[in-house]
Amino acid sequence: MIQINDLSHRFPNGNLALDSVNLNIKKGEFVVIAGRNGSGKSTLVRHMNALLLPSSGNVIVNGMGSSDQKDHWDIRQAVSMVFQNPDSQFVGMTVEEDVAFGLENLGMASDNIRESVDRCLQFAGLSEYSKTSPIHLSGGQKQKVAIASVLAMYPECIIFDEVTSMLDHASCNDVMDLINSVHKAGKTVIHVTHRLEEATTADRLIVMDAGRIVLDDTPSNIFLSGKVSDFGLELPPIIALAKKFKDSGILQGYLALSKDELLEDLCQLILKT
Protein backbone atom coordinates (compact mmCIF):
# COMPACT_ATOMS: atom_id res chain seq x y z
CA MET A 1 0.00 0.00 0.00
CA ILE A 2 3.01 2.30 0.46
CA GLN A 3 5.50 2.46 -2.35
CA ILE A 4 8.69 4.49 -2.13
CA ASN A 5 10.88 4.96 -5.18
CA ASP A 6 14.37 6.44 -5.07
CA LEU A 7 13.41 8.78 -2.25
CA SER A 8 15.99 11.34 -1.14
CA HIS A 9 15.45 14.07 1.39
CA ARG A 10 17.68 17.07 1.95
CA PHE A 11 16.81 19.47 4.80
CA PRO A 12 17.07 23.20 4.08
CA ASN A 13 20.33 23.34 6.07
CA GLY A 14 21.93 20.88 3.66
CA ASN A 15 21.63 17.68 5.75
CA LEU A 16 21.03 14.71 3.47
CA ALA A 17 18.74 12.66 5.74
CA LEU A 18 17.58 10.10 3.16
CA ASP A 19 19.66 8.83 0.29
CA SER A 20 17.76 7.05 -2.53
CA VAL A 21 15.53 4.80 -0.45
CA ASN A 22 13.40 2.14 -2.14
CA LEU A 23 10.71 0.43 -0.14
CA ASN A 24 7.43 -1.33 -0.67
CA ILE A 25 5.09 -1.99 2.22
CA LYS A 26 2.20 -4.39 1.70
CA LYS A 27 -1.25 -4.13 3.25
CA GLY A 28 -1.50 -5.83 6.64
CA GLU A 29 2.24 -6.11 7.12
CA PHE A 30 3.90 -5.50 10.51
CA VAL A 31 7.18 -3.74 9.75
CA VAL A 32 9.75 -2.64 12.31
CA ILE A 33 12.23 0.05 11.32
CA ALA A 34 15.36 0.18 13.48
CA GLY A 35 18.59 2.13 13.36
CA ARG A 36 20.79 4.37 15.44
CA ASN A 37 19.83 7.98 16.31
CA GLY A 38 19.96 10.23 13.30
CA SER A 39 19.87 7.38 10.80
CA GLY A 40 16.80 8.88 9.11
CA LYS A 41 13.97 6.78 10.50
CA SER A 42 11.70 9.69 11.45
CA THR A 43 12.42 11.43 8.19
CA LEU A 44 11.49 8.30 6.24
CA VAL A 45 8.20 7.68 8.04
CA ARG A 46 7.18 11.34 7.85
CA HIS A 47 7.25 10.96 4.09
CA MET A 48 4.71 8.16 4.37
CA ASN A 49 1.95 10.49 5.55
CA ALA A 50 2.95 13.61 3.66
CA LEU A 51 4.31 15.52 6.66
CA LEU A 52 7.51 15.82 4.63
CA LEU A 53 7.78 15.94 0.86
CA PRO A 54 10.52 14.34 -1.27
CA SER A 55 13.52 16.34 -2.47
CA SER A 56 13.68 13.76 -5.23
CA GLY A 57 11.98 10.44 -5.95
CA ASN A 58 8.38 9.75 -5.02
CA VAL A 59 6.11 8.28 -2.36
CA ILE A 60 2.85 6.62 -3.40
CA VAL A 61 0.19 5.74 -0.83
CA ASN A 62 -2.80 3.75 -2.10
CA GLY A 63 -2.09 5.06 -5.58
CA MET A 64 -1.90 8.70 -4.46
CA GLY A 65 1.40 10.53 -4.85
CA SER A 66 2.45 12.73 -1.92
CA SER A 67 3.65 15.42 -4.33
CA ASP A 68 0.04 16.31 -5.08
CA GLN A 69 -1.10 18.75 -2.38
CA LYS A 70 -4.78 17.95 -2.78
CA ASP A 71 -4.26 14.27 -1.86
CA HIS A 72 -2.52 15.08 1.45
CA TRP A 73 -5.62 14.85 3.61
CA ASP A 74 -6.59 11.51 2.06
CA ILE A 75 -3.08 10.19 2.58
CA ARG A 76 -3.07 11.34 6.20
CA GLN A 77 -6.37 9.66 6.80
CA ALA A 78 -5.11 6.39 5.32
CA VAL A 79 -1.75 6.53 7.14
CA SER A 80 -1.79 7.91 10.70
CA MET A 81 1.13 8.58 12.95
CA VAL A 82 1.82 8.42 16.70
CA PHE A 83 4.84 10.37 17.93
CA GLN A 84 7.64 9.92 20.42
CA ASN A 85 6.86 12.53 23.06
CA PRO A 86 3.73 11.57 25.00
CA ASP A 87 3.24 15.13 26.25
CA SER A 88 3.25 17.25 23.16
CA GLN A 89 0.63 15.58 20.97
CA PHE A 90 -2.55 16.42 22.84
CA VAL A 91 -5.06 18.95 21.65
CA GLY A 92 -8.07 18.18 23.80
CA MET A 93 -8.69 19.13 27.39
CA THR A 94 -9.94 15.63 28.18
CA VAL A 95 -9.03 12.20 26.87
CA GLU A 96 -12.30 11.83 24.94
CA GLU A 97 -11.92 15.23 23.30
CA ASP A 98 -8.44 14.36 22.17
CA VAL A 99 -9.64 11.11 20.66
CA ALA A 100 -12.46 13.03 18.96
CA PHE A 101 -10.12 15.66 17.47
CA GLY A 102 -9.37 13.85 14.20
CA LEU A 103 -13.02 12.94 13.63
CA GLU A 104 -14.08 16.54 14.23
CA ASN A 105 -11.63 17.55 11.51
CA LEU A 106 -13.24 15.05 9.16
CA GLY A 107 -16.59 16.73 9.79
CA MET A 108 -18.35 13.72 11.31
CA ALA A 109 -21.66 14.22 13.17
CA SER A 110 -21.62 14.38 17.00
CA ASP A 111 -23.42 11.07 17.57
CA ASN A 112 -21.08 9.16 15.29
CA ILE A 113 -18.04 10.80 16.88
CA ARG A 114 -19.25 9.80 20.33
CA GLU A 115 -19.75 6.22 19.20
CA SER A 116 -16.30 5.87 17.59
CA VAL A 117 -14.59 7.55 20.52
CA ASP A 118 -16.18 5.16 23.00
CA ARG A 119 -15.26 2.18 20.84
CA CYS A 120 -11.62 3.24 20.49
CA LEU A 121 -11.23 4.06 24.17
CA GLN A 122 -12.57 0.62 24.99
CA PHE A 123 -10.18 -1.01 22.52
CA ALA A 124 -7.25 0.78 24.18
CA GLY A 125 -8.57 -0.06 27.67
CA LEU A 126 -9.05 3.59 28.59
CA SER A 127 -12.82 3.87 29.02
CA GLU A 128 -12.56 4.90 32.67
CA TYR A 129 -10.35 7.88 31.80
CA SER A 130 -12.58 9.44 29.16
CA LYS A 131 -13.24 12.63 31.17
CA THR A 132 -9.74 12.91 32.62
CA SER A 133 -7.25 15.53 31.48
CA PRO A 134 -4.34 13.84 29.67
CA ILE A 135 -1.97 15.74 31.94
CA HIS A 136 -2.96 13.51 34.85
CA LEU A 137 -2.10 10.26 33.04
CA SER A 138 1.14 8.27 33.12
CA GLY A 139 3.45 8.21 30.10
CA GLY A 140 2.21 4.81 28.96
CA GLN A 141 -1.43 5.84 29.29
CA LYS A 142 -0.71 9.03 27.34
CA GLN A 143 0.72 6.99 24.47
CA LYS A 144 -2.33 4.73 24.57
CA VAL A 145 -4.55 7.82 24.28
CA ALA A 146 -2.49 8.95 21.32
CA ILE A 147 -2.96 5.50 19.73
CA ALA A 148 -6.72 5.59 20.40
CA SER A 149 -6.80 9.06 18.82
CA VAL A 150 -5.40 7.82 15.54
CA LEU A 151 -7.41 4.57 15.62
CA ALA A 152 -10.56 6.69 15.78
CA MET A 153 -9.83 8.02 12.31
CA TYR A 154 -9.99 4.49 11.00
CA PRO A 155 -6.65 4.51 9.15
CA GLU A 156 -5.45 1.53 7.15
CA CYS A 157 -1.92 1.96 8.40
CA ILE A 158 -0.48 3.35 11.63
CA ILE A 159 3.10 4.51 12.06
CA PHE A 160 4.55 4.45 15.58
CA ASP A 161 7.64 6.67 15.69
CA GLU A 162 9.64 5.60 18.75
CA VAL A 163 6.50 5.70 20.89
CA THR A 164 8.12 3.51 23.55
CA SER A 165 11.44 5.33 23.88
CA MET A 166 10.34 7.64 26.70
CA LEU A 167 8.49 4.98 28.71
CA ASP A 168 9.50 2.70 31.58
CA HIS A 169 9.68 -1.05 31.03
CA ALA A 170 6.16 -1.93 32.22
CA SER A 171 4.45 0.82 30.20
CA CYS A 172 6.56 -0.19 27.24
CA ASN A 173 5.15 -3.72 27.37
CA ASP A 174 1.63 -2.35 27.75
CA VAL A 175 2.00 -0.16 24.69
CA MET A 176 3.62 -3.00 22.70
CA ASP A 177 0.63 -5.23 23.57
CA LEU A 178 -1.68 -2.55 22.20
CA ILE A 179 0.41 -2.20 19.04
CA ASN A 180 0.27 -5.96 18.53
CA SER A 181 -3.50 -5.98 18.93
CA VAL A 182 -3.78 -3.10 16.45
CA HIS A 183 -1.93 -5.31 13.98
CA LYS A 184 -4.18 -8.29 14.79
CA ALA A 185 -7.19 -6.06 14.11
CA GLY A 186 -5.99 -5.95 10.50
CA LYS A 187 -4.03 -2.69 10.31
CA THR A 188 -0.74 -2.25 8.55
CA VAL A 189 1.74 -1.38 11.30
CA ILE A 190 5.07 0.42 10.94
CA HIS A 191 6.91 0.55 14.23
CA VAL A 192 10.08 2.62 14.58
CA THR A 193 12.31 1.65 17.51
CA HIS A 194 15.87 1.02 18.51
CA ARG A 195 14.98 -1.80 20.89
CA LEU A 196 15.18 -4.97 18.83
CA GLU A 197 13.10 -7.08 21.24
CA GLU A 198 10.13 -5.08 19.95
CA ALA A 199 10.78 -6.54 16.49
CA THR A 200 10.22 -10.17 17.49
CA THR A 201 6.52 -10.19 16.63
CA ALA A 202 7.04 -8.33 13.35
CA ASP A 203 6.81 -9.78 9.84
CA ARG A 204 9.72 -7.77 8.64
CA LEU A 205 12.66 -5.83 10.06
CA ILE A 206 14.27 -2.91 8.25
CA VAL A 207 17.55 -1.50 9.52
CA MET A 208 18.60 1.99 8.48
CA ASP A 209 21.96 3.67 8.65
CA ALA A 210 23.07 7.08 7.38
CA GLY A 211 19.89 7.67 5.40
CA ARG A 212 19.90 4.29 3.64
CA ILE A 213 18.16 0.97 4.14
CA VAL A 214 20.97 -1.45 4.96
CA LEU A 215 19.05 -4.57 6.00
CA ASP A 216 15.55 -5.70 5.06
CA ASP A 217 14.45 -9.23 5.96
CA THR A 218 12.52 -11.24 8.55
CA PRO A 219 13.64 -10.47 12.11
CA SER A 220 15.10 -13.95 12.69
CA ASN A 221 17.14 -13.90 9.48
CA ILE A 222 18.57 -10.52 10.43
CA PHE A 223 19.31 -11.63 13.99
CA LEU A 224 21.03 -14.77 12.68
CA SER A 225 23.15 -12.81 10.22
CA GLY A 226 24.80 -11.07 13.18
CA LYS A 227 25.07 -7.82 11.28
CA VAL A 228 22.97 -5.60 13.52
CA SER A 229 25.93 -4.59 15.69
CA ASP A 230 27.54 -2.96 12.65
CA PHE A 231 24.71 -0.43 12.65
CA GLY A 232 24.70 0.59 16.30
CA LEU A 233 22.04 -1.88 17.42
CA GLU A 234 22.22 -4.56 20.04
CA LEU A 235 20.56 -7.99 20.10
CA PRO A 236 18.34 -8.53 23.15
CA PRO A 237 20.19 -10.82 25.65
CA ILE A 238 17.77 -13.74 25.21
CA ILE A 239 18.12 -13.71 21.44
CA ALA A 240 21.90 -13.31 21.66
CA LEU A 241 21.95 -16.38 23.90
CA ALA A 242 19.69 -18.38 21.56
CA LYS A 243 21.93 -17.39 18.67
CA LYS A 244 25.03 -18.62 20.58
CA PHE A 245 23.33 -21.98 21.16
CA LYS A 246 22.42 -22.20 17.52
CA ASP A 247 25.83 -21.06 16.21
CA SER A 248 27.58 -23.65 18.33
CA GLY A 249 25.23 -26.36 17.07
CA ILE A 250 23.60 -27.09 20.43
CA LEU A 251 20.18 -25.98 19.17
CA GLN A 252 18.82 -26.54 15.70
CA GLY A 253 15.84 -25.28 13.75
CA TYR A 254 14.25 -21.86 14.19
CA LEU A 255 15.93 -19.18 16.26
CA ALA A 256 14.12 -18.70 19.58
CA LEU A 257 12.90 -15.11 19.82
CA SER A 258 11.60 -15.06 23.39
CA LYS A 259 12.38 -16.39 26.82
CA ASP A 260 9.56 -18.96 26.58
CA GLU A 261 10.66 -20.24 23.18
CA LEU A 262 14.24 -20.61 24.32
CA LEU A 263 13.17 -22.45 27.48
CA GLU A 264 11.04 -24.80 25.44
CA ASP A 265 13.91 -25.53 23.03
CA LEU A 266 16.23 -26.22 25.93
CA CYS A 267 13.71 -28.50 27.67
CA GLN A 268 13.26 -30.52 24.51
CA LEU A 269 17.02 -30.79 24.16
CA ILE A 270 17.31 -32.13 27.71
CA LEU A 271 14.48 -34.62 27.14
CA LYS A 272 16.14 -35.89 23.97
CA THR A 273 19.54 -36.52 25.59
Binding site: N49, L51, W73, R76, Q77, S80, M81, F83, S88, Q89, F90, V91, E96, E97, A100, F101, G102, L103, E104, N105, L106, G107, M108, A109, S110, I113, R114, V117, A146, S149, V150, M153
Partner: peptide, 17 residues
Amino acid sequence: MSMESRCYQGVHRTSIF
Protein backbone atom coordinates in the same frame (compact mmCIF):
# COMPACT_ATOMS: atom_id res chain seq x y z
CA MET B 1 2.79 17.88 13.46
CA SER B 2 0.30 15.87 15.51
CA MET B 3 -2.58 18.16 14.51
CA GLU B 4 -1.62 18.09 10.86
CA SER B 5 -1.32 14.33 10.78
CA ARG B 6 -4.86 14.20 12.17
CA CYS B 7 -6.10 16.34 9.29
CA TYR B 8 -6.55 19.67 11.11
CA GLN B 9 -7.03 22.40 8.52
CA GLY B 10 -8.60 25.21 10.56
CA VAL B 11 -11.66 25.13 8.33
CA HIS B 12 -15.12 23.87 9.14
CA ARG B 13 -15.10 21.06 11.67
CA THR B 14 -17.71 19.41 13.85
CA SER B 15 -17.60 18.70 17.58
CA ILE B 16 -18.12 15.69 19.82
CA PHE B 17 -20.41 17.97 21.83
